[in-house]
């Protein structure tokens, strides 16, 4: 029974994606219509300067937001797992988890209102653009990184760090030689998650982005409200290809790492 549901569920998840990708190779001008095989929409996609510009902005933004989120979220996870019962821990924990569950519309509105209020009070940040977008995405990503890192530290326990301290390492050395190498995979996973969240975000970007900072999802959202275009079909193929390639590279890296150690 559960296997039947599993394959049905996977079919449901994949059907629109595969259909989307399949019709990318159709010559027809309308989406989801077969008009014979053609590469023309990939050529059109490669020549779409606006889309490429938005995509490169999205990649840079996602990388920056993910890096910021990794640093902030890593610190949050470490504080939650290793600082014991300090004053205000409950509030700290609730604030760290809040972006995970707050409806995006509320988060987006709240961040925008904050940026406007800050600009009024201090003159910074000037208007909305890449910087505000970066902060908004980093604040969402940091919450995810914190969960991953906290989980890793909790399952690891304090024993290894105690052992290092016992062998004469001071707090900074314990962190550099023991804690950091052991949570590095979690930090990397958190970075990837934060990258994806930023790269896929429409709602936070709608609130906190300004003129001149149009991300790929924002551009697509404005263009695709009425449904897919043939170029969007081609883009779906590209994205799917990149994701599969990334997954394969990761697998190969895992295999080679396991063989070495």
């Amino acid at each position: 029974m559960s296997r039947v549901v599993l394959w049905l569920g996977l079919g449901f998840l994949w059907a629109p994606v595969l259909l989307m990708a399949g019709f990318a190779f159709s010559d027809a001008r309308q989406p989801f219509v077969w008009g014979g095989f053609s590469w023309r929409w990939f050529v059109a996609l490669a020549g779409n300067a606006r889309l490429l510009e938005a995509a490169s902005l999205s990649v840079l933004l996602a990388a920056g937001a993910a890096t910021l989120a990794m640093l902030a979220g890593g610190a949050m996870g470490w504080v939650l797992a290793r600082q014991g019962a300090f004053r205000g821990r409950a509030v700290f924990g609730a604030l760290a988890a809040a972006p995970l569950v707050l409806p995006e519309v509320v988060s987006g509105l709240a961040l925008l209102l904050l940026f406007v209020a800050l600009e009024r009070l201090t003159g910074w940040p000037q208007g909305r653009g890449v910087l505000t977008l970066l902060l908004a995405h980093a604040s969402l990503g940091a919450a995810y990184v914190a969960v991953v890192v906290q989980g890793r530290l909790a399952s690891m326990g304090p024993l290894l760090e105690d052992a290092a301290a016992d062998l004469g390492a001071n707090a900074a050395t314990v962190f550099r030689t023991i804690t950091l190498p052991l949570i590095a995979p979690s930090l990397a996973a958190g970075w990837g998650l934060a990258f994806f969240l930023s790269f896929d975000d429409v709602v936070l970007a709608s609130f906190t982005s300004g003129p001149g900072a149009t991300t790929l999802p924002l551009l697509l959202f404005s263009q695709l409200r009425m449904g897919a275009t043939p170029e969007a079909h081609a883009l779906a193929v590209v994205m799917l290809g990149l994701a599969v390639a990334g997954l394969c590279l990761w697998q190969i890296w895992l295999r080679s790492k396991n063989r070495v150690s």
Binding site: L159, D162, A163, A165, D166, L167, G168, A169, N170
Partner: peptide, 15 residues
């Protein structure tokens, strides 16, 4: 702190 003490510890699960 532990680092400054001359003793050494062998942990139960070895750590």
């Amino acid at each position: 702190p532990p680092a400054a003490r001359p003793c050494a510890m062998m942990f139960q699960s070895y750590a």
